[in-house]
Structure formats: C-alpha cells, structure tokens
Design a protein around this nucleic acid. Structure first.
Lengths: 215, 215
DNA sequence: TACACTTTAAGGGTTTTCCCCTAGAAAATT
DNA sequence: AATTTTCTAGGGGAAAACCCTTAAAGTGTA
C-alpha cells in the first residue's frame, strides 16, 4: 500500500486527485495539507511513502519544504507538481531532493504511472519538463558568463539609499532621513553608480527597477 | 440532469473534477475540452447546461470564449474557474456573460454548490473573488480621480527626451543626438517634470517605467 | 586575530540638473 | 483662418549631483 500525502493549496485540485487515487486499490491518501509547514509536521507524525507536492505553496514553498524534509529521518519521496513549467522551479526543487516533477496538465494515467515510478525509487518527469531542463542547462552556460559578476552585491545601507533615490529624495533629504552626513550619502551614491554600472541617478533608478532590487 | 462541459487545459484538473462530479447523481460530464475553440464547437453540437470554464485557456482565453458563445443560440451557463484571483480577469469575464467565478482552491462542496446555483439562474462567486471585485471598484474610483488628470499627455518630442534620460544620457548628449540646443532639451526636461509631477530625473525614470511610457 | 568589507565622513572641485523668466517659429487643432 | 500647443532657444542663478582622494571606526568571517 502506497501512503500518499497531498500538498496543494488548491482545494479543488486536492479533492480531484483524491477522487482519482480512490480508484486505485494499492494507493491510499494518508492526508491532505494546504501549506508548507503542515507538510513537514505531517510527515513527522505519519508514515508517508510519497508526497504530491505543489511547488507554489503558501507560507513555505515546495523548495523550502524539500529542504526541511532532509533535516530529519523519513523515507517519503517527493513528486513535485506545478502549474508552471518554470525552469527555475524545476531545477531548484530537483536539487533539493524531489524525485519527480510533473505538470498539472498531466492526465490521470500519467499521474498514476509517475507515482509508481517515483515510489519505486526512480525519477519521473513530464516530457515538457524534460525539455525545460535541457533548455535551462543550455542557458546556464551563457548566463554564468554574462549575467554573473553583474552586481558585486549591494549592501544593506546602499539599498536603503537606493530606495530613497528611487523615491525622488535628494542627497540632503536622504542624509536627514538616515541621520548621517551628506557626504556619507554621496559616498553611498557613488558606490552604487560604480557597482550598478550606471552613469547617473536615472540609470540607478532604471537598473534598480529592471532588476527588482527594491523590496 | 445537469450536463456539464469541462474546459481546462490541465488534464489532471479535468480528471479530478470528473471524479468529483461522478459521485453526484444529478450531474453528468457531457464532455471535456482542452482549449478555447473546442468549447465553442462542442456547445454548438451538444446539449450543455453549464460550462466549467478555465479563464486561462490556450489559443482562445475564457473571455474570448464567452464572447463567441453569445454569437449563437444556446442556453449554456458559464462558471469561470481560475488559479488567480486577478481583478482584470474577474471583471472582464463577468462583463462577457459568465454567471459565476470560483478559484481553484475551492473545495468539493463549494464547487457543487456553485454549479447548482449557477444552473439555477443565479450568480455565484467565491468569497475571495467578491473581495477582489470590491477592491477593484474602489481602485477605479481613486484611479479615475488621481491617475486620470495625471498626465496631460506627453508630446512626441518630450517622449524622445524622456527615453534618452532613461537611457542615462545627459542633457548635453540629448541635445547633440537630437540636433537641438541644450536649452531646448532643458525646456523639455522641465515640462516633463511638471507634467509627470516628478521632482527630478530619478522620478522621471520611475514614473516612466511604472506607467509604461516607453515604447 | 587578522583580513575584508561596510559605514561613516571630509575637502575641494567640476558638471549637471533644476528653476525662474521670456519669446519667436512651427505644427496641430478647431 | 484663428487659436492652442509644441518646439525651439536664450540668460542667469541656485541646488544638486558627480568625481577624486583619503581615512577612521565598525562588522563580519575565515
């Protein structure tokens, strides 16, 4: 008997899978959880052979769940499920111990097949996913040469200054806000210009927005 | 007997709903389709009481399907389903004839309830969706008051200057590029600051990007 | 404990931006 | 044809940004 834990915040989806698995005599839905932390606590207290894990869970996403699962003794395999054939998700969750990755447009038969394969100790990926992984590997080669070394990382204080620049504050205003000297802010400004490879504040703002440097 | 058409490109999801509906004696899955055009042709040739329509279908999205359905005689109601509680989707598909909108995190019981309500001629929305619609209406009020008279439109030349500012060019450089005087560019700059309600170039860049003023 | 990085700060200078004003020529709109 | 808007351009001045150098004190990490 295969004990399966369903982890997905889309109730309708969970109920659907539940109905599908009910028809299989050798499978049993051991539980249903709707967020990341519950996955971890459930596995700690119950026997689980396989987790059907949604990558985009609230509170704690699939990748973090995988990391947490490696922290303690358990023999639960992870079959990741996602709406999106997103390269970053795929590679990251596989690097963190997931044995398979299927998309939500996978049919009933393929789902059951994937479950049995993963429980059997092998890996399973949807065809689309396989292609994505390949593409991802190709990109990595290029990316690591160009995009890397782009930002020698921006420090905490620099980011504060950057945010205030984007909010149209002048150097003097920033100095007042942060209770530091005008000269210090100027110093941070020029570090930012250097690190971000910008010529002026206009560039700073553009690059900051384009690269999502503002939390 | 309620004849239901399932329209969603996520096979696993369709199979799941199928399993759920099988348990209801008064409901029958009349068909399953995986893209927009097939919805239309299916409804033309079969008796359908309700379409469980995914908003984000390939080839032809839910909104376009709704429009197409209004073109010919049929008494199929539409219950829209989506992963996303996206304001724009919700309001647009409702304006195009959908009677209900539920999210994929809706549970089995709520789904069945929603189906019966919509088939009965009334409307049904998930609680989350209702909230979203309200928020949307609130925003519109504010947007039309604030954002409207926000830009008294930016002229062709001003936009050129704006683009070059975003690209980190100085006033002098812009003057050279456009074969006009430094003072002229300064003039455009200050018009931009005025029109866009910015304090400096940083603001110009931010507002330009945020409002997609750069084609 | 060193070593590296960050934060703080200053002097002194150049360049750029921003602001006020005015104003004719060209283009678009009515 | 008349009116409005846009584009052009200037003077002059204040503020802000940018550049270069130097350097002490604090923070974090191997």
């Amino acid at each position: 008997m295969i004990n399966i834990l369903l982890a997905d915040d889309h109730t309708m989806f969970v109920d659907g899978i539940d109905s599908i698995l009910k028809t299989e005599p050798d499978m049993k839905v051991a539980g249903k959880v709707y967020n990341g932390p519950d996955v971890v606590s459930f596995v700690k207290e119950n026997e689980v052979d396989l987790i059907l894990l949604d990558v985009n869970l609230p509170d704690m996403n699939g990748i973090e769940v995988c990391k947490a699962l490696k922290e303690f003794e358990n023999n639960a395999k992870v079959l990741a499920i996602s709406m999106f054939n997103e390269e970053s998700f795929v590679t990251e969750i596989l690097n963190n111990g997931a044995q398979g990755y299927i998309l939500k447009n996978t049919g009933r038969e393929e789902l059951l097949k994937a479950i049995r394969i993963v429980v059997g100790g092998k890996s399973y990926f949807s065809d689309d996913v396989t292609q994505t992984i390949m593409k991802g590997l190709m990109k990595q080669r290029k990316a690591s040469k160009q995009k890397e070394g782009f930002f020698p990382k921006i420090s905490r204080r620099e980011k504060e200054v950057l945010k205030l620049i984007v909010q149209e504050h002048t150097t003097q205003e920033i100095a007042n806000k942060l209770f530091i000297s005008l000269k210090t802010v100027e110093s941070h400004r020029s570090s930012l210009l250097n690190k971000m490879n910008a010529r002026n504040s206009a560039g700073l703002v553009r690059i900051a927005i384009e690269n999502n440097l503002l939390d």
